[in-house]
């Protein structure tokens, strides 16, 4: 499904040259999601210890 969405994006006339940028944005979003979960877990740990 994600691949289909990606193909839809980069096949548009105004986004034909934005493939790399989109991939970078997705990578950043992935890292942000990972860090969000990571920080939340460690914050809960700190609260449980205090």
């Amino acid at each position: 499904m994600i691949n289909e969405l990606y193909q839809q994006v980069i096949q548009r006339p105004d986004m034909s040259s934005a493939g790399l940028e989109v991939i970078l944005m997705l990578a950043v979003a992935y890292v942000l999601g990972f860090l969000f979960c990571y920080v939340r877990v460690h914050r809960d740990r700190g609260e449980s210890q205090s």
Binding site: V9, M25, A29, Y30, G33
Partner: peptide, 20 residues
């Protein structure tokens, strides 16, 4: 991003959830 904004947002949200 023109008319692809909604699709881009969905992709970003999916990537965020995939990271989590």
């Amino acid at each position: 991003f023109g008319s692809a904004s909604l699709t881009i947002i969905l992709l970003l949200l999916a990537a965020f959830l995939a990271g989590m």
